[in-house]
Amino acid sequence: MAGPVVSSDAAADSQAKISADIEEISRDYAASGAVETQPRIDYAPYRSSILRHPTKDLHHADPETIELWAPAFGQRDVHALESDLTIQGGGEPIGERMTVRGRVLDGDGRPVRHQLVEIWQANAAGRYIHKRDQHPAPIDPNFTGVGRCLTGADGSYSFTTIKPGPYPWKNHHNAWRPAHIHFSLFGTDFTQRMITQMYFPGDPLFDLDPIYQAIVDPQARERLVATYDHDTSAHEWSLGYVWDIVLTGSHRTPTEEDTDV
């Protein structure tokens, strides 16, 4: 097992040490010739992962019964106004107003219809509504940073929000997370369930961040970066970003009936 483990909140190491570790893993990956599309779950530069990842291989399972279905969500669960994070307080939140929109697709390119999308994020100053977030940046009384919506028949989603700020954390000394929005997604079967983070193009913190870099494949991690879309921006109102999400392929696919012609 691992040697002495440093508390994930010790902020003991320098950015230079973390960056060197990231670089070494990156070099080894490039030399391996393998292609990975998901994050490593064993990624020591992200200190709190050290004791929180399984050391045994994931065990192959053929999905059965309940795993071939996903919970259904509907208008009962989600109000249409929950997709606008700028109208939840008594006034306008401070920050750069923006729209984030895109589509949720399965691995076969089919839209994931009428399914739940949940987001949460820091405010413009990089502060979350959470007792654990005590860094000295202001809370915005008009911004909770929490939103939900159901996808449309074409798998589309859209949120109105403000751009989150980067924020400090305690992985190492002077550690800062690139600005991001957390996304929680369901598919048509439970094996597609995922949670991820959307980032913004050109963030100078990408190379320094062990959570983003835990996706060791450069092309794969770029899939988490939204695209600025001027057509989504609105005159004298907001900036627009587009980000499509692909879930793993459904197991309960158009099956024998479709191919058996």
């Binding site: 994050p39 995922m194 991820t196 959570i211 988490l224 692909v246 392929g249």
Partner: peptide
């Protein structure tokens, strides 16, 4: 087949 979007920690 489309390549799936990577996951990230819930934080």
């Amino acid at each position: 087949q489309l390549v799936p979007t990577p996951g990230q920690t819930i934080g």
